[in-house]
């Protein structure tokens, strides 16, 4: 098998950075997420490849939190689009876990299938390569196995790396992956190493039948109870590897400006406010319910897979201990009147 010595990791990242902007998991000051390798400063930042994961998922590489779409100039009643900011510079995500790769696959469904292609997303994604990091030691909050994710063989990866002591085993998975492998081929060696075995998950949860059951539970009293502690902030949606909702807005200075899109959160009152002032999800409970129905029911209905990838981030960062696993359990246990 092909392996990359860990001693050569930085050389490999430098080399890969010649052809693409490489995003790696790091701790950067108070932030923990995927950041550009070019921004890595030895004395301040820390590479987090050996950790289970980082707080902010790599989704921002293909769907940035804020992205300019096009520039506008107005002349009287005439409006001219004077610039389109489609960004197709090559990017490479290095070391994403299977749950996070699944998040990007979910966004592929949304932005590239069912008869509509989002040009901005497509431009980024077609020039994006994913090097996934096989996961053998599930953490305390991990339950990807229950959400159709295989932690050891991440679907959708162009290359899979596997940690085996001093080396990463390097497995090419796609044509894009072959190009990347060729780029660093002089750093790879042939060596047979032992692969770790997948450890056991501490969380025992079963998603089977949940989407179906939720169809009958829109008005269930369960939502009142479980949404009570939620303070309706947006942390869970922003650290989530698969939450993709955005808003499109305009900034104008006199007769010039630009249109941009920015992540939005179903937890915010403004998110579902209509032009006339009405709001179908004016109450906190309704917004809370929307998030979990989207994760566990609506996405499953439309795309045949849940929108939760079992990464466990929301359960770590929630200020009020809202826990999606307990919600799945509660749904399974709930009594429903036919």
């Amino acid at each position: 098998m092909k392996v990359l010595s860990k001693q050569r990791l930085e050389t490999a990242l430098n080399k890969l950075s010649e052809a693409a902007e490489v995003f790696v998991p790091m701790q950067k000051g108070g932030q923990s997420g995927f950041f550009s390798w070019q921004s890595f400063k030895n004395e301040q930042d820390e590479l987090m490849l050996d950790n289970l994961n980082v707080y902010q998922s790599p989704k921002g590489v293909v769907l940035p939190q804020t992205e300019k779409m096009y520039g506008i100039k107005t002349q009287g009643v005439e409006i001219n689009i004077d610039q389109v900011y489609e960004d197709d510079h090559p990017t490479l995500i290095f070391g994403a876990r299977a749950c996070d790769v699944k998040g990007i696959l979910a966004m592929d469904e949304v932005f590239l299938t069912r008869g509509y292609e989002d040009n901005f997303y497509k431009a980024r994604r077609s020039n994006n390569v994913i090097i996934a990091h096989a996961c053998y030691t599930p953490g305390d909050n991990c339950f990807c196995y229950a959400m159709e994710v295989n932690p050891v063989d991440p679907a959708g990866a162009d290359v899979i790396i596997r940690d085996s002591g001093d080396v990463y085993v390097w497995e090419t998975q796609s044509e894009k992956g072959e190009a990347v492998t060729a780029q660093i081929s002089d750093l790879l060696e042939d060596k047979d190493v032992k692969l770790p075995e997948l450890g056991s998950f501490k969380i025992d949860v079963d998603y089977t039948g949940v989407a179906e059951k939720l169809k009958t539970m829109f008005d269930h009293p369960l939502w009142d109870k479980i949404s009570e502690p939620c303070s309706n902030c947006g942390i869970c949606t922003y650290v989530c590897p698969s939450c993709y909702c955005f808003d499109i807005q305009v900034k104008m200075w006199g007769d010039e400006g630009y249109r941009f899109r920015a992540w939005d959160s179903c937890m915010y009152e403004e998110y579902s406010r209509e032009a006339g002032g009405g709001n179908p999800r004016g109450a906190a409970k309704e917004r809370f319910r929307q998030r979990f129905l989207h994760k566990l029911e609506f996405f499953q209905e439309r795309y045949g897979t849940p929108l939760c990838t079992g990464c466990g981030r929301c359960m770590v960062v929630c200020p009020n201990d809202i826990n999606i696993v307990r919600i799945i359990d509660a749904v399974k246990e709930a009594e429903v009147n036919d």
């Binding site: 804020t66 902030c233 947006g234 922003y238 807005q249 900034k251 920015a262 939005d264």
Partner: peptide, 29 residues
């Protein structure tokens, strides 16, 4: 993520200035 606002007891305005759209006082970028 506005978590700082949401957990704040002193943030008791019914409509927060940051949620207003007409006019929009603070940009969303």
């Amino acid at each position: 993520c506005y978590a700082c606002r949401q957990v704040c007891v002193a943030c008791d305005c019914r409509t927060c200035i940051f949620d207003e759209m007409k006019p929009q006082w603070v940009g969303r970028e």
